[in-house]
Computed example of a mutant assay.
Amino acid sequence: MSNINLPFLQTINVGHCKIGDGHPVFLIAEAGVAHFGNPEKADRLVDLAAEAGADAFKTQAFITDDLISKRSGDWYERMRPKEVDLPFFLRMKKRCEDQGLIFLCTAHDESALRWADELEVPAYKIGSGERGNWPFLSATAKRGKPIILSTGMYSKDDVEQAISILSESGCCELALLHCVTAYPVPYAEANLGAMAELKHLFRGPVGYSDHTQGEHVSLAAVALGAKVIEKHITLDFDVPNAQDWKVSLGSGNFPDFVKRVREVEAALGTGSLDIQDCERPSQFWALKSLVATRFLAAGAVIDAAMLTAKRPGDGLPPSELPRIIGRKLAREIEEDMPIRVEDLEA
């Protein structure tokens, strides 16, 4: 089964950014809950994303009692202190807007989804944990805004079902992010090739939500054509009872990461087989010309033994040799000097 013919747009609009072929990689700085409920940390995370040049800052919203059953024990206790209220998010959003950042927020439950409405996010980010929660996907799609969907823990059938449900519920602007839900993801299980499979299933933008350590897997995803990159950021490392920091970048390396993403996407170029402007000067010293192997007198009939190919490329190229064998020289040629068209009799 393929959903390639479902009416999704190939380019979607999120805030002031277009996402799709022919547009820059949409780079999301995923802060998650790295603010730990502290407004000052939240400010610093926004500033880190803005100063590095990310396109969007993303956080996560949830009501612990609505998200996690108390029977989960430790998990419930770990998440409760990271829960913040709507004014906290409104404050973050304003700081983002003041610095030209798009503000995004993953809603992890129905209550938080209503907060996202109040925050007037330009797109809804749906996390991998909503696999199988098709009513939630449908409710999000019916809000009529673009959706960015992470596909961690999804099988091919799950992806196809999610795409169909989103389409049936009115979504026409969708980006799919390949994701592997582990912290950290072993490099051998990052499975970046799955992005190609997503492209076969779906005509809209495909990207990568990165849970590996370091930068290089995200950069490889860009080289493979990812149109969205989501990378975690943090201010704190070695945090007990937390996991996002294990796959996060901080103030010491996130700015360089953003720079490298832009360099890699620039390096992809147009894909056309053309001589690049930067290499035109190299044609003189790197290419070869036909030169005389010995002194050649005027009137000599050229044979192959009289010529060889040497740098620089300021004369006839070696490819012209078959055309000039048997021609007469109009003037003498010194040994090691190039032969040119005007050196030949008409």
Rank of each mutant, 00 (worst) to 15 (best):
A297F: 04
A286P: 02
G127L: 01
R91K: 12
P281C: 11
D66W: 08
M92F: 02
L86R: 08
R327K: 14
L149E: 02
N3L: 09
K145S: 04
S69E: 15
F295I: 06
P186K: 08
F57R: 01
L249I: 05
H216E: 14
T11M: 06
K41E: 10
F295L: 11
G170P: 12
T234G: 00
L329V: 04
N13P: 05
L119M: 14
Q243K: 14
S169T: 07
N253S: 15
V228G: 03
V301L: 13
E189L: 14
E320A: 14
F8E: 04
R91M: 09
M79E: 12
A194D: 05
I102N: 05
P318F: 10
V228H: 05
E120Y: 02
R203C: 09
K328W: 03
H232Q: 11
L137C: 07
P135Q: 08
A226N: 03
K58E: 00
S111D: 08
D47Q: 12
D343A: 02
E40L: 07
L67R: 09
P24W: 05
H178Q: 15
A305E: 15
I4R: 01
D277A: 15
K93C: 08
P87G: 01
G313R: 09
I4V: 10
F202Y: 11
E130T: 07
T181N: 13
E120N: 13
D47I: 04
V291G: 13
G252W: 14
S272Q: 14
G22S: 03
